[in-house]
């Protein structure tokens, strides 16, 4: 009967009001057979992590556009770690300058997908790295 399905929480963070990219990614992951809980805009790190806990999410995906990625990423990583969600994949995406990608990974993001990424690499990355 029922099988294992990958569950993903997708969210915007802070005051960034550009949600098109997040919705597109959420739809693409749905089409790839994943269950996507979409949180929308204006979420703070605590809100996103609480949703991931209650939903037993395998993946947290956060979309950035307005240059807040360097501010919010450390807060998100701290919240994820302090709540013990070490087995949850944390991925970031959106309009992120290439030089910031290694910085975000250093901060603790598992993978970064910048604007222009095709669907397949995102889906393949999640499938290969999600907790089993």
């Amino acid at each position: 009967m029922a099988e294992k399905r990958i569950k993903v929480v997708i969210s915007k963070v802070g005051l960034d009001g550009h949600d098109r990219g997040a919705k597109v990614v959420a739809s693409l992951l749905k089409e790839a057979g994943m269950e996507v809980v979409y949180l929308g805009m204006y979420q703070m790190p605590e809100d996103i992590v609480r949703a991931a806990i209650d939903e037993d999410a395998d993946v947290i995906g956060v979309s950035f556009l307005s240059g807040e990625h360097l501010t919010f990423t450390p807060k998100l990583v701290e919240e994820i770690r302090s709540k013990g969600l070490d087995d949850v994949l944390f991925i970031a995406g959106g309009v992120i300058p290439p030089e910031d990608v290694p910085v975000l990974k250093e901060m603790g993001v598992d993978e970064v997908f910048v604007a222009g990424t095709l669907t397949k690499p995102i889906v393949d990355y999640i499938r290969a790295n999600v907790r089993k």
């Binding site: 399905r5 749905k30 790839a32 057979g33 996507v36 949180l39 929308g40 609480r50 939903e55």
Partner: peptide, 22 residues
């Protein structure tokens, strides 16, 4: 609902209730 094609789902109800997340 789940997609009858991919089996995936877009779960969009929680977003209206996120203010209770603390």
């Amino acid at each position: 609902p789940s997609s009858p094609f991919s089996g995936g789902a877009f779960l969009g109800d929680r977003l209206r209730m996120q203010r209770h997340s603390r």
